[in-house]
Nucleic acid binder design. Structure first.
Lengths: 358, 358
DNA sequence: ATGAAAGCGCTAACAC
DNA sequence: GTGTTAGCGCTTTCAT
């Protein structure tokens, strides 16, 4: 049909108004779906709009209304399937409420996170959902709050920032997972986590600025101590942020004669890399070493043996945090909520008695 | 510090101008980084901006410039790690060029895809990258083109739409994968793909409206025929869009005594589900049945045996399609490009001779 | 029920 | 170099 050159100037309410022989205001009323218009005029305007192929300019609309219909989301790493699911939960919930989502990746880097927040605020998003990469520097998050836009935190709580927050029961989950290991007889258990840190060695909790990481370590250590294990922190390893780092940590961990007999991994990306290294070294799971990981990633159920996991309802986390945010966007004033979503442990075949006992 | 109530009205160039005792235009010049200003005035304005905590309103900026700095992306399913990687490639490339990304999920539904496109156009994105879910209805994509905004296609070509398109060598990849199977002696090979279709049975290529799906089937059939296999289409199955569908297809496929001795899966989501069903039925890979899948998903390297895959450079696809789009956004006029990125096959342990020969 | 006009925050001509 | 002015496309009083 219309094979003419691309439309240079898009058609505006003024164009439609002219075509329909009404005022700009009237056309805008029917096009924008507000105010009152007679049925006849409505019909005329709609017909004109159709004839001209009118598309509203959401930008202009946002500018006058102050709302963009966009929710900004900043996550640590979209390639981590935990976040994929959470984002899916966010998107579905937002879309159902008529909102769009702008997604930004922080790569767990505080500077990238700040930049992303700045941009999103500039775009006048109606609200933000952030997975804060650390709790020391929250000035940019404070700014959001100050700018009057709602903010909700996903997966990680910030002690200094009293806003709607949804996390899982990290401490408890870590304790339960660890207990499975100690109950099976393990005394030398490694905990490997992804917090960005120059060294892999763990000193004390003061080093850790990410709530979920911290709480999991706390839970792990507590469960170990409950089982009478002394200095359980000797096998805590930080900095498994990339496959190569994880590989280095695992290699070192498995090289000593005093090596751990079980491993608890803080996410599935770490676990899969550790699993590969374990395999390559000719070790068997769980005969030679037991393994539990956070997150029920797809691969954990197809390995031989399948992996015991802490199942985190990622989609649900995304859904809940979005609901909280939407409620704020709608202007409900009430104290910030702190939702803790329970996890469950799916026992599969990757835990067995420690090899030393054989 | 400033613990006052959230800023109601955000500070504007006018506010900064007043504070710095210069005109709005001058303030705008330094704040917007264009035009020329004396160093002294620049300093004054910057100081005023800082004091007032000025944040540019990107919306207003976009409205006057006509550019939003946003690239709209519509993919089939973000949970599919193939798309995750592609999106990561898109994001990284876009961000490096100073663009943001709005991500929308079509769920491979044409209506959702149309809605997403409409919204993104409304937001005046500077360009769109779409993974078209089918090639019959491309009116909405034509509209993009007509609206003057660049459009680039990812992973799937559209015969009717002559725009920048980046895909992998689907036909050839399917042929090579199939040949591995035929060379190993297989004569009864199933091809299972995810195109949305009411029945699972395949009749002819005319049913298929998605280029990548179609080309892969073509390649599969061609390679089978080259190997002298008659009616290879008898084992082509469509509609593996959800785990349940895949499960049903696999169950049926494996229930007959004439069951296939090898399977080629069109994506890793299908393959993992098939792998699970195979396991549950007590069949072994590759002794009882061989398996190859498109996409080097993480799980394919940790199963026993690991899975032979068609490695698609998803990140690269995203990167390349974004580069093409950015070039168009910059206004370069030249004929649409059709880039075909080569794939490679990673041979692992999931292919063996057909069990019937034993 | 409809219209006229102002204004959202910014950029872009065009003067001076 | 700096200021003045006029929009961008829409919503929103305020009249009529």
């Amino acid at each position: 049909m219309n094979n003419s050159t691309p439309t240079i100037r898009s058609v505006t309410v003024a164009d439609v108004a002219r075509e329909a022989r009404v005022s700009k205001a009237t056309a805008a009323r029917v096009l924008g779906g507000y105010g009152v218009v007679s049925d006849k005029v409505r019909g005329d305007v709609l017909a004109a709009a159709k004839a001209l192929d009118y598309r509203p300019n959401e930008l202009a609309r946002s500018m006058t209304t102050g709302k963009s219909g966009i929710i900004g989301v900043v996550v640590g790493d979209i390639e981590n399937s935990f976040f994929s699911f959470a984002v899916r939960g966010i998107s579905d919930t937002a879309r159902a409420a008529g909102f769009n989502v702008i997604l930004a990746n922080s790569g767990e880097q505080i500077e990238a996170e700040k930049a992303a927040v700045r941009v999103l605020i500039g775009k006048r998003v109606d609200g933000l959902i952030v997975t804060p990469s650390e709790s020391r520097d929250v000035s940019h998050l404070r700014d959001i709050h100050r700018s009057g836009r709602p903010l909700a935190l996903l997966d990680r709580a910030l002690p200094d920032l009293d806003v709607d927050t949804v996390t899982v029961d990290d401490r408890d989950a870590a304790m339960r997972a660890t207990r499975i290991l100690t109950d099976t007889g393990h005394r030398d258990i490694a905990y490997v986590t992804a917090v960005d840190f120059s060294e892999h060695e763990y000193r004390d909790l003061e080093q850790i600025y990410t709530s979920s990481v911290r709480e999991r370590i706390e839970g792990f250590l507590a469960a170990c101590r409950d089982a009478g294990i002394v200095t359980p922190e000797r096998f805590v390893r930080l900095g498994a942020t990339k496959p190569e780092e994880t590989r280095a940590i695992t290699d070192k961990l498995l090289s000593t004669p005093e090596r751990p007999t079980a491993i608890l991994a803080s996410d599935s990306l770490i676990a899969i890399e550790m699993f590969k290294v374990i395999r390559e070294r000719g070790l068997r799971v769980p005969e030679d070493i037991s393994l539990i990981t956070f997150h029920d990633a797809d691969w954990t159920s197809v390995t031989s043996p399948p992996i015991t996991v802490v199942d985190q309802p990622a989609y649900m986390l995304g859904k809940v945090v979005t609901e909280l945010l939407l409620r704020r966007i709608e202007g409900k004033v009430r104290p910030p909520e702190r939702v803790i979503v329970p996890t469950s442990i799916i026992q599969r075949g990757s835990v067995g008695p420690p090899f030393r006992e054989k």
